[in-house]
Design a binder for these strands. Structure first.
Lengths: 344, 344
DNA sequence: TATAGTGATGTTACCGGTAACAGAAAAATA
DNA sequence: TATTTTTCTGTTACCGGTAACATCACTATA
């Protein structure tokens, strides 16, 4: 049914090894024979069988991506961008990308063999929001080269690429402070998430450096959802505590908070300046456009892919295992929701 | 280095075929021997090599997903949801999902062999917005079972799962009409996209059924982007043509249009009712919350996966090729942006 | 011219599973 | 007990590539 290398060989009147040499661009083939073989290959639409190749090379030319988010809090927009970034680099090296959602519990469920075990991929990207013990334990049990994307894991032997969310939060808070805001509320995401933590710490550090202190009453939790952001903002506003700005740890929550501000009959940025985090596709469409922090997610994917390729190259060369840990800069994106331009 | 079936056999003191039978749950093994083998397997963390399996079964247990969107207009949120849907079903059957972005030009670039050719996947999902000739031609050249997701292709022999966008657009336009709106503007997406077409036709049909006609002056193009939606809305508003509602063919454009309405000093829904399409995560967070049409994208993924499994099952059974064409219903989601409740 | 050296091609075995058949042991029947 | 049948286990070959080695033709060197 399917055409094999030996079929091509027969048709071209050569041995199967000659065909193998042709498709591998091995120089040891006379040009005329190479051409004859190539003609047959093209005529038959022949493509080598990757399973056979993988079987004796041990390389599958597949990279896995394990996505470990709760579907409820799934950052759809942001996942795709990372994937595009990873893919753009890997494609050049003819890798396929194998996508897996939240199958952590199956990682070591061995016998059926179709899971995240060594044989079906050469490396694994892990995209996760939390670094709980469960994750860390499991990661160390996987024998594959791993690159954790979007967060820094505490174990120093694990490669990871993340964004400098702390600095981003610090910068945006400072921006609000420079605009004259002094009572800045904070809406955090899901408490167990790493980014919640980082963003809050950046926020608090900026306040401290301005001689202020964060007021626990002004800090809410929005669980990274728009309704969560809205509810949290409502509570903060209801305090009548003179809040003049709200920094929400995600754009989605910021947009929710926007609604709450409007519902309270207040203006943005007149009464309350608003800032988000992420720079989603809809944050510049908000009214007013949302000041936020941009994570270059596509770049994060690219860097992760590069790290993986480097790690595999090193492994192939037999060197000591390479560990890549990189934190990419974030960028403050000033739009109208945060009020007038810098005053100094 | 890596443990193979024969290693296990040696350790357990049986032949490799016995091990093969154990991992395939073949009944022809005495319980005591099965246990002995299983113990060794677990102790060694053995997993069968999928490349070897694929090599003689011909089944790779991998499904490909080809995403054919312009990165600029990339529907990030919606892609992920479809993927989760597909994945949820395929995972049960132990398939892996292999993700590919816009590599159409490589589909037949044969020799390197790491591309979208027959040998690395058992089936292919194509997620695309347009059905241009280029796509159709290429699709017919692929020998793999294909399911097109998110649009209906004209060739009747190709399986596809889409949403009833026409009816959705019809329903939401009717909803605006029932709310007393009579001068309803329309903002279309990228003209070449199928959904642009469907949504506009639904809009026009509703007008006609209400004894009205669409006014070309009130129809803009927003290219599915928020700024596009905003610009288009600006133009429509500037006409001073008594527009009392705008139906944008995507939520993102609708949110852009919202800004334009506010910038013009008008109210929503007081002066202008607004409606979108998609039901994105941010549409309910908008102020006011956006009336829209929900496409059950996750369900679309599930249905596509089921179709693919059915097609493969049929193929395996040697029956005539199965073609599945299914249009899933859409759902009108009424929120505040479209004005007061039905008046009749 | 004999010999070594080089370039091009073919032969064989192997990667790690599974199918198909062969063979041995246990159970059923005569 | 002998024979047939059934149940279980082992042997061999094969899937479609590639590595390693063998072979052969032809050129360069002695």
């Amino acid at each position: 049914m399917k055409i094999t290398l030996r079929d091509i060989a027969k048709m071209a009147g050569v041995s199967h090894m000659t065909v193998s040499r042709v498709i591998n661009h091995d120089s040891m083939v006379r040009p005329e024979i190479r051409k004859k073989v190539m003609d047959v290959i093209e005529e038959c639409d022949y493509t080598p069988n990757m399973s056979a190749r993988a079987l004796n090379s041990g390389e599958t030319k597949v990279m896995g991506v394990l996505v470990l988010y709760d579907p409820e809090e799934f950052p759809a927009y942001f996942l795709t961008t990372i994937l595009v970034g990873i893919s753009s680099l890997l494609t050049k090296d003819e890798y396929h990308l194998s996508l897996h959602f939240d199958q952590l519990h199956k990682v070591r469920n061995l016998v059926p063999g179709h899971l995240l075990t060594d044989n079906r991929m050469d490396g694994l990207f892990v995209i996760s929001a939390e670094n709980n013990e469960f994750l860390l334990e499991r990661l160390s049990a996987i024998r594959l080269p791993i690159v954790v994307v979007n967060q820094q894991v505490p174990m120093s032997g694990v490669s990871c690429i993340d964004s400098d969310e702390y600095s981003g939060a610090y910068a945006i808070t400072t921006h609000l402070l420079r605009n004259g805001r002094r009572r800045i509320g904070f809406i955090g995401g899901t408490p167990s998430y790493n980014s919640t933590n980082m963003r809050q710490r950046g926020y608090e550090a900026a306040l401290v450096d301005f001689g202020l202190r964060s007021d626990p009453a002004l800090c809410g939790v929005g669980y990274f959802s728009s309704t969560g952001g809205r509810e949290a903002a409502k509570k903060i506003i209801a305090l009548q505590a003179g809040v003049d700005a709200i920094f929400a740890a995600s754009d989605l929550m910021a947009v929710g908070a926007m609604s709450a501000v409007y519902e309270a009959g207040l203006t943005i940025p007149g009464d309350i300046a608003l800032a988000g985090f992420d720079d989603n596709e809809f944050s510049k469409a908000a009214y007013p456009p949302l000041t936020t922090v941009r994570k270059n997610r596509s770049q994060m994917g690219v860097e992760a892919a590069q790290a993986m390729l480097d790690i595999l190259a090193r492994k192939k060369a037999g060197g000591a295992p390479l560990v890549v840990r990189k934190t990419l800069p974030t960028e403050l994106v000033v739009r109208e929701s945060s009020g007038s331009a810098l005053t100094g």
